Simulated assay, not measured.
Amino acid sequence: MERPALDPDRLRAALVAPAGPYADLEVVQETGSTNTDLADAARLRPWEVPDLTVLTAELQNAGRGRMDRSWVAPERSSLFVSVLMRPVNRDGRPLPTDSYGWLSLLAALAMAESIAARTGVEARLKWPNDVMVDGRKLAGVLAQLVPSSDGAPPAAVVGAGLNVSLTDEDLPVPTATSLLMEYASTTDRNILLQDYLLALADGYRLFCSVDGDADAVPAGGQDSLRGRVTARLTTLGRDVRAELPGGGALLGRAAALAPTGALVIVDEQGHPHTVSAADVVHLRAGQA
């Protein structure tokens, strides 16, 4: 199967200032993890990594997903892209760090919306940051804080992995899927990456304009970030099992999103629990 390379010149012309919203974009042939590389650079050389810096790779050989799972795929079969964010509001004031939990949901929403608009594949969200098609994982998002060494507010790196042209034989797990397998109208990674990054930058700009308040409707917008996420989120109202970091599980009904983007689960005794990080399993009737 022919898998064309990304075109750095084309992507920079469309996405990097002055024509686009991004500060810089680099395409590398191979790396361990775009998230790790970008986070290390932002921590060690912050003056070289401004807000909205992009790193993407043709092959990622040590990518990590949620709960420290590995994420690998054949060369040029997927999108592996990370964006460095230093969120500030219109007045230049840093956003409250408790709003950062929405950044991964913002990125997953941008991925789902851009895919639907471009390819006709109607993707949905599964908390906290999976993009799904009919219960199978199409893409995943992983956000991490980048502490500052000079006392400034932390940055965030938001990485996304999208299965584009993987076949049945390529899938890392049987519960995954790809745009090719979903009969997408295009699998051109240059188009898909450009659409995603433009959608992400637009959503990020709106989020910053309301000071990271997911319940606020930005000027010129039609809905809040919470409203847009909820419209595509399949988790709320479902019986779930949340597998918690470090072991243990919580069973209950996914009731709401907390102000920080965390998931509120009401257990069988009616007690609410706010879960910030977990691997959530949607349960069928009679399943525990």
Rank of each mutant, 00 (worst) to 15 (best):
A258I: 12
M1T: 04
L166R: 05
N190S: 10
D7G: 02
Q194H: 10
G247W: 05
P96H: 03
L192W: 08
G161A: 09
R12H: 00
P154Y: 11
R45Q: 13
R45W: 11
E30W: 05
Q222G: 12
E48V: 01
L103C: 01
G246R: 00
P153L: 04
T187C: 11
G203H: 09
L59N: 00
L244S: 13
R205L: 04
G161W: 09
L192Q: 08
L192T: 02
R43L: 03
S148I: 11
C208A: 03
L44A: 14
L171W: 08
L105F: 02
V88N: 01
G246K: 04
R45E: 15
I191K: 08
P74K: 00
A13Y: 00
R3N: 06
T234Q: 15
G220Q: 05
A13Q: 14
S82Q: 02
A139W: 06
K126S: 06
E268D: 15
V210D: 00
D150I: 05
W71G: 08
P153R: 02
T31F: 01
A107C: 09
L38Y: 03
M111C: 12
D98T: 08
G32K: 06
V141G: 06
D91M: 10
D168F: 07
V88D: 00
L200D: 09
V280Q: 04
T36P: 03
V81T: 09
M85I: 09
R90C: 06
D40L: 15
R90G: 10
H273I: 13
E75Y: 00
V146L: 12
V16G: 01
A262V: 13
P8G: 08
S178H: 07
E26F: 01
P218V: 02
L225Y: 07
R232T: 10
